[in-house]
Amino acid sequence: MNGNRRSLRNLILYLFLAAISIFCLLPFYWLLRSSLMDLVQIFEMPPIWFPKPVKLSNYTEALTILPFGRYFLNTVFIVVLTITGTVLSSSISAYSFARLKWPYRNLVFGILLSSMMLPYAVTLIPTYLGWSFLGAIDTYYPLIVPAWFGGGAFNVFLLRQFYMTIPGELDEAALIDGAGYFTIYSKIIMPLTRPALIVVGLFTFLNSWNDFLGPLVYLNSEIKYTLAIGLESFKGLYNAQWHLLMAASTVVILPAVIIFFTGQKYFIEGIAMTGLKG
């Protein structure tokens, strides 16, 4: 009796989960479907579910029209430097905020944290003017350099929370053994917090990979475009060519999905472990 009720409840639960899964996945299918059709099929009424014939040439066409390979390399370049900078600078700052005592530390941290609620729109224009004053428009500096300065309060916050959970005796013992603070940071804290660092890395990857406004504002030369901007300009050129647009979108999405599947174990577990709380 109880068992029956439980299995009925589970059935409903699974149906519900399946429904949400469909909601999450169907757009991907529609994307893929449309990317494999020719324009006439796409505009067929009523819409058809399976491309026939499968038109792989959309991909070759989309890839030859704009230098997506070049955009990919540009994006990778930016992303790699951004992740490196963010992981290093946010972790070392977080280490200081979590485990070293210095005057006004918590006040300073509070101020940093408050910058999380600052709309980027406020700083967009002066930051832009600042970079242009430095002659850095149409370079990657504006997209990369900020990452080397803490990489945003969110990451520092996330790592600090994590570092605070490590027992303080570890550092003290190391200090007594004659280790310096940097050694503690690099030899004890960093290895212990690998999952959290991976989370920061992946968040940074996604943010940087998906960044739209930054490259839109700072990059001028087509040769320096990132994938996100490349896709947007592709839309500008091929407004109604849905088959090519969808193929190009798929190309842009794919690397992020692959990276996620490679790192997803650490990613989701990592966030769970950090125990993010307000």
């Binding site: 839109l216 001028n220 030369s221 087509e222 947007e232 300009s233 500008g236 050129l237």
Partner: peptide
């Protein structure tokens, strides 16, 4: 330089 996308910006 060919500018695709938002030219005005």
């Amino acid at each position: 330089q060919h500018i695709a996308g938002d030219y005005d910006t």
